[in-house]
Design a protein around this nucleic acid. Sequence first.
RNA 1: GCCGGGAUGGCGGAAUUGGUAGACGCAGCGGACUCAAAAUCCGCCGGUCGCAAGGCCUUGGGGGUUCGAGUCCCCCUCCCGGUACCA
Length: 840
Amino acid sequence: MSRYVPEDVETKWQRIWEEGGHFHVEADPSRPKYYVLEMFPYPSGRIHMGHVRNYSIGDVVARFKRMEGHNVLHPMGWDAFGMPAENAAIKNKLHPAAWTISNIDSMRVQLQRLGYSYDWRREIATCHPGYYVHEQRFFLKFLEKGLVYRKHSPQNWCETCGTVLANEQVIDGCCWRCDQLVVQKDLEQWFLRITDYAEELLADLDKLVGGWPERVLTMQRNWIGKSVGAEITFPLAAPLGGTDGADGITVFTTRPDTLFGATFMSLAAEHPLVASLIAGKPQEAAVTAFVDKVRNLDRIVRSADDLEKEGVFTGAYCVNPATGREIPIYVANFVLMGYGTGAVMAVPAHDQRDFEFARKYDLPMQVVIQPEGATLNAASLEAAYVDPGVLVASGEFSGMQNEAAKSAIIDWLDGSGRGKKSINYRLRDWNISRQRYWGAPIPVIYCEKCGIVPVPDVDLPVELPRDLALMPDGRSPLPHAPSFTDVACPLCGGKARRETDTLDTFFESSWYFARYASAREQDRPFDPAELAYWLPVDQYIGGIEHAILHLLYSRFFVKALRDCGLIAFDEPFANLLTQGMVIKDGSKMSKSKGNVVDPDLMIGKYGADTVRVFILFAAPPEKDLEWSDTGIEGASRFLSRLWRLATEELAGLLTPVAPCATAESLGLDGLPPLFAELRRREHATAAKAGADIRERFQFNTAIAAAMELVNFLYANVEALRAEPKGAKAVSSAVGTLLAVLSPIAPHICEELWQSLGHKTLLIEQPWPAHDPSALVTDTVDIVVQVCGKLRGKISVARDASNADVERAALAEVNVVKHIEGKTIRKVIVVPGKLVNVVAN
RNA sequence: GCCGGGAUGGCGGAAUUGGUAGACGCAGCGGACUCAAAAUCCGCCGGUCGCAAGGCCUUGGGGGUUCGAGUCCCCCUCCCGGUACCA
């Protein structure tokens, strides 16, 4: 047989699988379905090792589940809108569409070279009008339902990208994509009411426990940031009260039990009441200066590690609704307009931040909660007391436990309209407007007379014009293209202007997983029957970096589309696997570090199967994987060994026998014990690799198990060849080896399977069903400990009684030495495993 | 600060329910083959003492539970990830 030439083997089988349509899949209610999905890539031009890892993991799962008899949906597509296309287009004088499509074409070839078992008939590209027309309809449906709205407010603005960002897309005060510092800019934008779903998004995380990594659930919980407390209104003190339409300042607090200790009020610099509070007061100039300073320093300093707490008195007072006392109103740099109401009732005795602030500005402090067995004194307090205790100086509530006092005080306030129970979320509504060209147009029209008018369904999709030249500064050309913007109002026929913002690209990725179920459906986004069969995704696989952004948006979208009657499930991804990064020399691969390993080069040098084996063998999926040039040599060596084993060492011996064939059919009787041992190892390999893949996604140990079987076969080649009657047993073992490795290294296994004389394809074989009784041996090795220390090993019959095992253990030579002159206190026998002799 | 996760040979990692620590691979060392090299095959490969049999030590550090702890409990150190004035 010929030398192992990966390229020949791989192109051969890729062609056969492709021509046979072997990975095409149709819904079949008579069979159990399995939907495995890897996060689709942005078509940047070349795949990188992170993709190879992600898609290799997914492909093993897909191929394995097929072998286990599932009807497996395993699709691939392209997250094809986004800024890199615009940048590249400007640089290379190419249209973003042309750049994107050519990238998709070359990346598809790369993926196909790796032998991934996708149903390519379902391929989607989000920049295709046939895709985004559906999300334009979603948008209009959301608009109709009030789930999407327009709002004017300060927005996160990235100067480099020339567009706004959602809160989730601001990382450490910088743009998630380009790391540019984000600034605030007043703009009117489209928002999606994700906050309407905050409670469900939080509660349903419990349904994902067990299926999703705990840390992703925690990150989402923290991001949603639910706080239970109260909204309490502090009336403004005369002469301000009621004079300017503002009755008071409403705060959100999680500690209504400390209300009697609120001795001043802190407002955010951006709080709308600040201007009217200071108007005409001596403090006006100082406050204005402070507000300007805080707002200008904004993000930069506010994101600094420990910004000094500062504030300034407004000259105005409000009234603590519990004590009736007037308290001063401050503007403070640590109060955020974006959380709660932008106003905080300050309780310095029981909040560390307020404590520091009060000490700095010499503000009064009132202890209202006393710990058990101690008496706090405001004057001598060294830090805020934040733990539970009993209320004091709190009117009728004095003497209550503080936890009970929370609801008691809320009820008391509620009775007189001064406050109410309130739940606050950290989660903000999702800003979906982007001032970019290469995205899906937002399908509305602004009419001078009629206002905001949805684009009528017959006019959908609003296609992104492809004949526009990009602006050299990277700004969107859409607002400057009359052919796009100038339209007649669909309602009155009058002069109107088309919306020129496009949708955040996370809009596309929030529903693509459902589109695969019926990717070519034209008039509607989904075929309900297909959706009902395939969704939700059984196993989703991707990087941890999407723990919040994409995964939260997708969860929200599913719920929103469900409430629009378009889908009928609650959560998109039943199980989530977050794979670690591929690193080199200790850090993430990047051009600037010059440590990038190109998958294509590796495939060219070693073949796709070797690349797959290495990337799956080097680390378990959740951990970061250090790329190793010698490590991939090892993977290559292993496949060559496998090849030589089947084509040289055991040549002439191998026949088309079913993997894990029955003992009777192999005719083991009368053969040397080696053959029974081979069969035991064959079945153990199938059992171990199956469990590792099925239950733990632990491909590294599955591969290790296969390597052990290969090593065993090599070690016994001579003896195996010497017994022609054992040929069937050897063939069964080799067949099992190939079947077990086939999800991981599909091409070489298919080729060797054929070389065994099989007429069927290996990809159509079931996973080898091991016979549990084949794993049982006549004798078992037992380790013998004396006082917990290993002193010897004995071999006993599998069904030996504990007494027999104990007797044998105590007779072991080295054990005898160690118990000599001692009294045996106790003997512990763990059947089949171990004996521990306790003696002193 | 808070919340997760982690620390095992020279390296990547294994040990699934508390039961032989170091599977498998990489690197290294020795040998066979070869004029030689590559490739391949065989052997060794945590530290330490010992001719050997075998002993002692060893899973970041310290304590504990247990016949027995990498695994469970408590304390500490360090590393990684997330998050951070959230009222």
